[in-house]
Design a protein around this nucleic acid. Structure first.
Length: 485
RNA sequence: GGCCCCAUGGUCUAGUGGUUAUGACGCGGCCCUCUCAAGGCUGUAACAGGGGUUCAAAUCCCCUUGGGGCUACCA
């Protein structure tokens, strides 16, 4: 009788750098698939590249997944049915399986150096016994003739002619397995039923299918996700984003490819997940916002688009801004505070006091798209502006008349008001009514004098936070040092 | 070069033979308004091209073009 096999998927990163956006996307879809269908997710570390694998990198991967809420059932820090979830510790198993293939006569030894040009390796016809004993020989898998077909969950049937696949190495001359072989053995021994990975692996798939067949094992179901490409074209890599035209003000700006950066710069994991999910998946409705739980509930492979998508940093920011605005004020302050402190120093922030901070920060809840932006935007509360651009000075109509207005402002309002928000509002309003001028006529020059910019939160709040004395100092300085136009 | 994948506005997408071709980001305008942001309203912009199949193609087939991936004793 057929029993339904438990669904088992795996996410198998190699710890050779930081956690890439594309990898996280793959992890996310494995997670959504397994959580929506019921099953286990395995985290396997493919650390067989001794040169490049590092402990820090492993840490980064684990921290990144945890940050996003993508949890695994078996793997590092969890254990499970396999003796190890580190590929490097599974070499004996790989060798065992390789031996099965060798014994079955499905391989041959080869000592080609590789720099023999395009000529086909002829070792198959050489003395195998001699080759076997040569320290330089590798074990190659003998590709049988025929057609290999994949029935991909996302791409449908894909056919490959085996003639196009060359006999590849499964065991290196040092006896260690090569990637395409190790994955197959690991997926078999870990009972993986569904392989969900990036489209860049599609071309490798027939090699793996052939290996499954040679080992007499039914291959898992495949699903190849569309790639996330750089808006500059090509792979989304560090090299790509380092291109000179890729500056913050350019159309195609990408700040980073590693999730760690987004965590460090104040992105909310739920926004990041939402963006990534929505990048190549849709449930056919107009909905744009999904929590992780909603994604699990609504996820279906059918909703995955087969088309590669360009990474769009502006849309990510838009998502994040939305999630930030939806935070409670208390939580916004909590989350934003570390970035605020980092920007201005603990001492300076402490000096301003908790009450001051809890008045200031909320003003920026709808003005930052990610927390790290808080630093630049609030710099002027801590440092006097000294640079004023000609454009700003002009926009603010800085002429003799305006200067006289500001002088009166100092004498009149500053003298009378104790600088509460309410007092500032009423005195400034009285002042403009009396002078029969529009609010902006005086607000804008004051704003510039006090902040160095023409864009701040409401001026009553700003002046209240800067304080009476400091406001007077700044306005005076502006009057005395900035030439009228 | 060979093999493979993909193709709706600048970007992400809805659409599964008959629609004024959906929504969102971005961008522009208007409203709100002390500026900015947020918010509201609104505008811009797409079925890559050519052949078929069909009464009828964004939707099905083929070719071309374009984009992408793979092609290691890396993973």
């Amino acid at each position: 009788m057929m029993t339904e096999r438990e669904i088992r998927v795996r996410f198998a990163p190699s710890p050779t750098g930081q956690l890439h956006i594309g990898s996280v996307r793959t992890a996310l879809f494995n997670y959504l698939f397994v959580k929506s269908g019921g099953g286990k997710m395995v985290l396997r570390i493919e650390d067989t590249d001794e040169q490049r694998s590092t402990e820090e990198s492993l840490r980064t991967i684990i921290d990144g997944l945890r940050w996003l809420g993508i949890d695994w059932d078996e793997g590092p820090e969890k254990g499970g049915i396999a003796e190890s979830y580190y590929q490097s510790e599974r070499v004996e198993i790989h060798r065992e399986y390789a031996q099965k293939l060798i014994d079955a006569g499905k391989t041959y030894y080869c000592d080609c150096t590789g720099d023999e040009g395009p000529t086909t390796c002829n070792c198959k016809n050489k003395d195998q016994e001699a080759l076997k004993n040569s320290p330089n020989s590798v074990v190659r898998f003998n590709i049988p003739d025929g057609i290999t077909e994949i029935d991909d969950l996302i791409r449908g049937k894909v056919k490959f002619n085996n003639l196009d696949i060359k006999d590849f190495v499964i065991l290196k001359s040092n006896g260690n397995p090569v990637y395409n072989f190790a994955v197959v053995v690991d997926d078999i021994t870990m009972g993986i039923t569904h392989v969900i990975r990036g489209d860049d692996h599609l071309s490798n798939t027939p090699k793996q299918i052939l290996l499954y067949k040679a080992l007499g094992v039914e291959p898992p179901i495949m699903a190849h996700l569309p790639l996330i490409l750089s808006p500059l074209g090509g792979k989304l890599s560090k090299r790509q984003i380092a291109k000179p035209q890729n500056t913050p003000d350019s159309q195609n700006y990408v700040p980073a490819v590693n999730v760690e950066w987004y965590c460090e710069n104040g992105f909310l994991p739920e926004a990041f997940v939402n963006y990534l999910a929505r990048l190549c998946w849709s449930n056919g409705t107009d909905e744009e916002f999904f929590t992780l739980d909603e994604l699990i509930e609504k996820f279906s492979m059918k909703g995955i688009s087969p088309t590669a998508a360009l990474y769009d940093w502006k849309k990510l920011k838009w998502y994040n801004g939305n999630y930030i605005r939806n935070l409670s004020v208390e939580r916004f302050i909590d989350e934003c505070m570390p970035f605020f402190i980092k920007a201005h120093g603990k001492e300076a922030v402490d000096e301003k006091g908790e009450e001051w901070c809890s008045k200031l920060l909320p003003l920026y809840q709808e003005r930052v798209e990610y927390f790290a932006e808080i630093g630049d935007k609030t710099k002027f509360y801590f440092e006097r502006p000294v640079e004023f651009t000609p454009k700003d000075i002009k926009k603010v109509k800085w002429n003799d008349e305006t200067r006289d207005l500001l002088k009166e402002f100092l004498l009149d309002i500053c003298a009378k008001s104790d600088f509460t928000v309410e007092n500032l509002e009423s005195t400034i309003n009285q002042f403009t009514e009396q002078k029969e001028i529009k609010l902006g006529r005086i607000m804008q020059p004051i704003r510039l004098a006090v902040s160095g910019t023409r864009a701040t939160p409401g001026l009553y709040d700003v002046l209240n936070l800067i304080g009476k004395e400091e406001t007077i100092e700044r306005v005076k300085w502006f009057i005395d040092n900035v030439d009228v136009i």
